[in-house]
Design a protein around this nucleic acid. Structure first.
Lengths: 281, 281
DNA sequence: ATTGCTTACGACTGCCGTAAGAATG
DNA sequence: CATTCTTACGGCAGTCGTAAGCAAT
């Protein structure tokens, strides 16, 4: 019956994240006392203790942990609702497409050219930003390579291409006889700072890469950093000191167009169709 | 930055659903004027027209349509957050399992017996109620047969079984020579009141059945209503005037255990494991 | 003794309900 | 002309900020 209010969720998330009422209040632009009372009122309303406070430490109870997860999701959904409504009502509406620079398999120019429903606005971002932007309504669609977190999204695959490994030209593996396998690369460092292990090597193309492309390329050229990238990305960046080689048991990558559940407006549907058309040629 | 409040979303959903300010206000337990102002304030805040009002008609604009979808989802997420926190703080917590009566493939008694983490509370409901209950936090897990709407849920399959068709004993198809095919059943009425067509016949086990089992059975026994049901459900209900027959190109049904994204607490994880154990024997 | 959450209290913003107004079919 | 959304206005609940209290390191 008595739902939580967005304001309460915002307060709780701030306190839970800061683990400190003072800093949370500052972040929210308010004084501590009302924040303190609001949380207490929330606990009373739910009949649950969310935080254990000593004067030196604020910690989440198990219930608080799960509420933090749920509250983040709920706030994201509320923001998505507001943002999408706001954006679609603008005088000169545009379709916002989120993608990571160069991760378009060379399709973007042709898609934009053939898509004539609306002006296209690009939203460039780092890894993981794309799906987040679509989920919270800042973008209408995104182009992302697998693997990505599909929660709250629908998608259509565009192109599936093998991934290759980027090696320094001086790397002994360049002259490795026969096809490379993942086991040949075990123990090398990945761009996210972890060592490549057999169960781990499929992830780095996805979420956790924190540097931009040229940085990664120069790290690969110099050290024994390895990087897995889709074929089409390798083709776009021929570099003198870099060699791309196929890896036999490396899973291929699929570039997909994704949109938020329930937001398949005519404009989005047309974009998806255009992207599929272009990709199938 | 200026998020919508839960209250505003509730108001908007009520008006959008009733297409009438008066009835919506009544449903919300308030007077029309503040409701009218709240919606107008929302429109101003978003810079978008959500409804077109004449004094005789209230209709949604396209933007309003998409906001209605998003708002429903957002409210569901907020309610889920509140409900889960509330329930997990109860003095004698229990694990609430949502299912449709008899749709447990005979597994439930053994699962409940072997699951010793918490008391188990059952939440019975009609088709579609289960996933909704899990999504909005009224249940921790659910047992559901495919197909179901997987949005916001994670799942593990338990058992996959062929589906069979229930026919009246007097039905000419009972003596049909050779294996039945879906095309033999085209045009028959389904429990949801629509005619069975080739592309349509996989749905009825799922969402839209609105009668209970005994009603459906008697309708099958009397008229030319057809019903598709999992093998294990047919086995549990041998009925004198009913014949179950295999259908060659009818997709099998999988009974799955589902839970809300991010709510895989230890108790839930243990239940899932127990269910899988029981199902695999 | 200092840091930091909580309680107390006065002020205010903003929402609600009643009553009157305007517009549509 | 009747129904129904909107505007106007007075009352009130709920939230905020400042100041004082109190517990833990």
């Amino acid at each position: 019956m008595n739902d939580l209010e967005t304001r309460q969720l915002r307060y709780f998330v701030a306190v839970a994240e800061e683990q400190h009422f003072g800093r949370a209040a500052q972040r929210l632009g308010m004084a501590q006392p009302p924040l303190s009372r609001a949380i207490r009122e929330m606990e009373r309303q739910l009949g649950v203790q969310l935080l254990v406070r000593t004067t030196r430490q604020v910690a989440l109870t198990p219930v608080g942990e799960t509420l933090l997860d749920d509250a983040r999701r709920a706030l994201e959904a509320v923001q998505a609702a507001g943002r999408r409504a706001h954006r679609s009502g603008r005088p000169a509406p545009a379709l916002t497409v989120a993608l990571k620079a160069d991760f378009d398999a060379g399709l973007l120019p042709r898609i934009v050219e053939e898509y004539r429903e609306l002006p296209v606005q690009l939203l460039l971002g780092g890894p993981g930003d794309q799906v987040r932007a679509v989920r919270d309504g800042r973008a209408d669609v995104a182009l992302v390579p697998t693997p990505y977190d599909p929660q709250g999204l629908e998608s259509e695959p565009l192109v599936t291409a093998p991934r290759v490994v980027a090696l320094a030209a001086s790397d002994p593996l360049v002259t490795h006889p026969g096809p490379l396998r993942l086991s040949d690369l075990a123990g090398r460092m990945l761009p996210n700072g972890t060592a490549a292990e057999l169960g781990d090597v499929t992830a780095p193309t996805g979420q956790r890469v924190r540097r931009d492309l040229s940085q990664i390329f120069s790290l690969v050229e110099t050290g024994n950093l390895v990087w897995f990238l889709p074929q089409w990305l390798a083709e776009r960046f021929p570099r003198p000191n870099l060699v791309y080689r196929a890896v036999e048991d490396l899973e291929p990558s699929t570039l997909a167009v994704v949109w938020a559940v329930g937001s398949r407006s005519p404009a989005v549907a047309a974009f998806v169709r255009t992207a599929q058309d272009v990709a199938s040629r």
